[in-house]
Amino acid sequence: MGVIILLLLVSISVAAIFLGAFIWNVKSKQYEDEYSPPIRMLFDDAPPKKETTESSK
């Protein structure tokens, strides 16, 4: 019986992780723009976080 309860907890927490991921997706506006994310990841030089150096010239 203990095993069943353990399995229950595991299954619910896995589902909860997916729920969290879903909410995170909506929050980060992934569903608002379906065009740019797949293209953005194909750019060779991803926009850097800090200021760029001019060395790439």
Binding site: D33, S36, R40, F43, E51, T52
Partner: peptide, 26 residues
């Protein structure tokens, strides 16, 4: 996609710009 590329690399044109992100649909 070119628009997307150019606009998201605005920081190369002006180093005062930290980031630019396009919402294509809007």
């Amino acid at each position: 996609s070119s628009c997307l590329y150019l606009l998201e690399h605005l920081h190369k044109l002006n180093d005062g710009i930290v980031s630019a992100r396009v919402n294509f649909a809007k």
